[in-house]
Each structure stands twice: as structure tokens, then as C-alpha cells.
Write a protein that binds this DNA or RNA. Sequence first.
DNA 1: TTGATTACTGATATTATTATCAGTAATATT
DNA 2: AATATTACTGATAATAATATCAGTAATCAA
Lengths: 204, 204
Amino acid sequence: MDKLTSKQQNIYDYIRECLTTGGYTPTMREIADYFGYSSTNTVNDHLQTLAKKGYIIKKPGTARGIMLTEAATASEKHNQGVPIIGRVAAGTPISAIENLDGYLELSEFYDERHFALHVKGDSMIDAGIWDGDFVIVREQHVIHNGEIGVAIVEGEATVKRITITQAEAILYPENEYYSPIRVDLNVTDFRIAGKVVGLHRVIR
Amino acid sequence: MDKLTSKQQNIYDYIRECLTTGGYTPTMREIADYFGYSSTNTVNDHLQTLAKKGYIIKKPGTARGIMLTEAATASEKHNQGVPIIGRVAAGTPISAIENLDGYLELSEFYDERHFALHVKGDSMIDAGIWDGDFVIVREQHVIHNGEIGVAIVEGEATVKRITITQAEAILYPENEYYSPIRVDLNVTDFRIAGKVVGLHRVIR
DNA sequence: TTGATTACTGATATTATTATCAGTAATATT
DNA sequence: AATATTACTGATAATAATATCAGTAATCAA
């Protein structure tokens, strides 16, 4: 993607800003006024360049007919994720990110099959799941033996390593001070709510 | 917030759709055409109602001057987070979420002062930070003694519990098999990159 | 130093868009 | 049954906004 000059970048940024703060893109007159240009043609020139370089699509004859392109928004969108930084060169400010490993987003969990559970207690501490953590759970009603999942026993949700045999389910805590819980499937209301696929912790 | 009639809802949805897929809001003529109204005044009436009910703000004399209100977009936005479920009643499918504790979003970290670091090694395992985890770091260049942060020593980023005295920094691992690292500030290139404020783990 | 690109001014025709008036008809609400 | 609200048609004036022409000037690379 062709790089923008600083003036082009400023105009592009302003369009984005209008869109996020005001909800609609600016007219050429508005852009001109904002930057102090007396002629809308100045803006027209710039917009044509932005379009030529692939940052926007202009719909001819359309008021405020500026669309930010997928490509441009995709690279901007990372502003909404957390950049993952690999190595950091000496003296380089973090903000001048060069060797980016990607972006961390929860979007991978965004579909409706996922939910989060606020973990209470330390029964899974040896599995790295702490009191107060949020586990991210994919809803599913079967689970492979030995996987960590969310079981609902008598209406109460619990995170454990789960094994199911014909007649009973065994919920293994990951904490040496706790004992496995055996659930008789013929007697007790039991079901699998989902599998633990992620963890999120807020550290103070 | 006043409820919308189905026609009003349809128009509101169409405006949202235009905004997300096309990048700009529709004109009254476009809305009329989409729904098969021959007069733009039909749309004008509807928009006035939407504005009166607080779903949009209309800027008079402005082409495509429709803004979706905060309130309306906020309630939509929850679709993009992961629902946090507290207790789960027996027999209730997860999808029929009733007792919702809120939504888990990374948005709290979205400002540009944050970045993520992919943790390598198990030197912080006793602090619940595992090999392969992502720590979320708020960029700051000072840190209180004893806090977990990211230090950059000779260009290499490392997550440790940090204490700084006049002449040296001490980086404490949280693993009984590792020893603290002492850094002579007069000799070694050292700086604080930020403070660890969150953790994200992908579990397979 | 020549030419291409970038960055503007100023003016104007043309079209896109809003705003508003004067109605009609169907659907709720009291 | 009367009244308000919702949901439209159709027309038109006023204005917002784009598009385009004809230029000037500065910057940058060949």
C-alpha cells in the first residue's frame, strides 16, 4: 500500500475521526474549513490521491460519499486490539513499534457459542486458573475425558478437569488440597456446559 | 428508551447497516428507495420520530446528517463482548442467559498506552504467569517497587517483579528455581517499559 | 533545468439533498 | 365515535455539496 504524505495522512485521519466521533464522513467543504483551505478543490485533489492510493473509495455525485477501504481500516483496526510486541530494540520507544508479532483480540471468541465465567475459589490453581480469573468457555455438551470444562451440577457451574464414565462423572480439581468429586449420573442433575478455551485475568 | 415500531426499527437497522457496510449513512431518498416509498417525506417523518425517541440525532441542513446516539449504539455493542454468566439454573440452556454479570471485553485496554507481550519461559510461574501467556502491559516508565512490570535490559524485554534502588534494579522471578537478577544501572542499558495489568491465555 | 508531483486559489455549473407544504388513509387509543 | 398517531403520496423551493475548469507556486527527482 502506497504511503501517504503527512498532509494526506492528516486528511485521512480527520475523515476517520469524523466517522468515529460524529458518525458520518465530512464534506469537502468541511475538510477545507477544518484545515483552512479556501477552495474545496484542494480537498478534491487530496481525496483523489487518497482514492488512487487505495485508502478510500469515493462515490461520485454523492454527498459525503467517502468510504474507508477494507485494507485501510483493517490496518487501523488493530488500534482496537492490543499490539503484541516481540523484541524491543534498545532506545526504541514502545510507541514506535517495529517488530510486531500481531494483535491480541478477543474477537476470536466473539461468536455466540462463547461465554465467560468468573472463577471463584482456588480449586484449579495448579492448572493456572486463579480465584477471580475469567475463563472463556466454548459452549458444547460433550467433552473429551481429561479436558478442562465447565460442568453444571445441580444447577451450580464449576470449572474442573472432567472425566465421564458410563455411570458417573469425575471432576478433578487441580489443587493438591482438594479431592476429586464423583457425581452419580443416575442420581444427580449433571451436564456439560462447555470447554474452557481461554483465560483472562485483570492484574492490579 | 421508547420502543420503536417495526417499521421504525427496520429503518433504524438499515441506517446501521449502511454505516457498517458502506461507511456512511443513507440519504432520505436512498432510504425511501430501499423501502419502496415514493416520497422522501415518509422517511423524513420516520427520522423525526427516531430522533424524538432518542435513537438518532439529525443535523438539520446536512446531507446524510444522521448520527446514531450513544445510548442506542451502546446497547448494540454488547454483542461484541463475551457475556459473563454467574450462576446457571438447572435445565436452562446457556444461550438463554438470564443472570448476566456483564460483558468481558478487551476494550478497557484499547487505548494506545497498552501492548501485549508473549511470555516465554516459566520464570513467573508462581505469579500465575505461564509460558505462552500474553501479558497486557500499560506503558509507563516508572514503577512502584514490588510491582510486576516489563523491564528492558540491553534491549531484551522481560517480565519480572521489579524493585529499583539508587544504583541498581533487581528483577525478581516468581519461581523458586530462579534467582533474582541484579542490574547495575550505571553499566547496563535499562528501562521500564510498563506495568503488567492483565493476562490472556489461550487454552487448547 | 526540466518535468512530474504535490499543494493550493477562485469561480461556477450541475446535481444531490434537505425541508416543507398540502394532502390522504390506515391503525391505535381514549 | 372521535381523536391522535403512524404511515404514506406528490410537489417544490432552498440549499448543500460535488465536479470541473483555469490557473499559480513549491517541492522533489531525473
